[in-house]
Nucleic acid binder design. Structure first.
Lengths: 206, 206
DNA sequence: CTGATAGTAGGCCGATCGGCCTAATAGATA
DNA sequence: TATCTATTAGGCCGATCGGCCTACTATCAG
């Protein structure tokens, strides 16, 4: 009888397994970044990674899972970065400012990754044509911002407004900044961030 | 020799030709509205219009031209509506307010059409994967808003800000409203409009 | 050495799409 | 009526995609 934990055949380190997945995920990101989501077929991704298409099928359940991992990874990185900045602020106004600032800071230093994930989130659809990531992603951002704003409202820090509306608008403002910067990389994101911070500070203060 | 203006064969009224195009355009709008852009193949559109696929090919150069006409028509209608509202205002602040208000008013009374064109603009890509309408559409909206804002800046009506940034943010805010309303039709667009008007009024005033 | 098995390569399959071709139809003109 | 041509129906074609299958390779246990 065999040991269940030790099958007979080749048993590489699971680290290699994980490394392979990372390699494929990275290749997917780079492919989307260079040719866009619409052209990023499994063939193109495999070609970019210099592997066979079936390697992707072997390590991922399908294209859906691969893209899901891509989005998940980049969002996790982004969130880690932003969260650290949020924690240094105590007031709602400060947290709102920090959110805008850190968001655009992150974009600036991870251009291709952010553009790639933006393309994927905006373009990838389920079999029935409904957006696969766009809604859930937006929802989580809006929830976070709404919480910050509601705190400020409860503390009497802000004027009276609908936190949902302002949250959506802040989120969309950042997407707008990303869009402008995607079209024209010479846009000064630092100045852009300052403009938005002033805009929403005036929009929310008493 | 034949008269050039009067060929021998059947020569229906060109009005019928135009009516056919309108019928196809309407069918395309309804198809996108009901099943989404991703599922709106030429077959589906033809099926919805109860005609053969080749009728579309006969009256339009291709899917690109059909969708172009769809977008062009709906934008023309929208613009006519909004422009009338803008003309009643003289101050920049008033025009900005009217723009936001009339935009959301139009959405409310033409839900399916606006959602359809939004889906098309956001999803339709050229053969190389680049957005076909999204960029040019955004650009024209931003240009219009920038002009309004610049007028207000020149007249000393507004505080000092970058009109590009505010224009992009206003445009995105409206897209955000559309997005929320697409997900949840019970959203009160009148209240939403008032929130946005107040928000941007405070954001731009001196 | 030998067998078992994880991992990889390459190619094939069914589905879908937009575009195109061909034949049939119908109405206007002579 | 005979004929010409605008219009339509239906089906086919080439391309592309994601997923799957089969065979080959490399490595490790015994």
């Amino acid at each position: 009888m065999q040991s269940e934990d030790r099958p007979i055949g080749r048993k590489r380190n699971p680290i290699i397994e994980e490394a392979r997945r990372r390699q494929i995920i990275d290749a997917a990101i780079e492919t989307v970044a260079s040719v866009g989501y619409a052209q990023a077929s499994l063939s193109r991704i495999a070609q970019h990674a210099r592997i066979s298409k079936s390697v992707i099928s072997y390590h991922f359940a399908g294209k859906d899972e691969l893209l899901e991992q891509v989005v998940k990874q980049i969002y996790a990185d982004t969130w880690t970065f932003i969260q650290a900045r949020l924690e240094t602020e105590t007031t709602a106004a400060g947290r709102l400012r920090a959110y805008i600032q850190s968001n655009l800071d992150y974009l600036r230093s991870h251009r291709s990754r952010v553009l790639a994930v933006g393309d994927i989130v905006g373009s990838h659809r389920a079999a029935d044509g409904t957006p696969r990531f766009a809604t859930t992603t937006d929802e989580s951002v809006i929830t976070l911002l709404t919480d910050i704003l509601r705190q400020g409202l409860d503390d009497g820090e802000f004027r009276d407004f609908d936190p949902q509306v302002v949250a959506v608008t802040v989120g969309q403002a950042l997407i707008g900044a990303l869009g402008r910067w995607a079209v024209d990389p010479t846009v000064d994101l630092t100045a852009y961030a300052n403009e938005l911070i002033t805009l929403f500070d005036r929009a929310t203060r008493k």
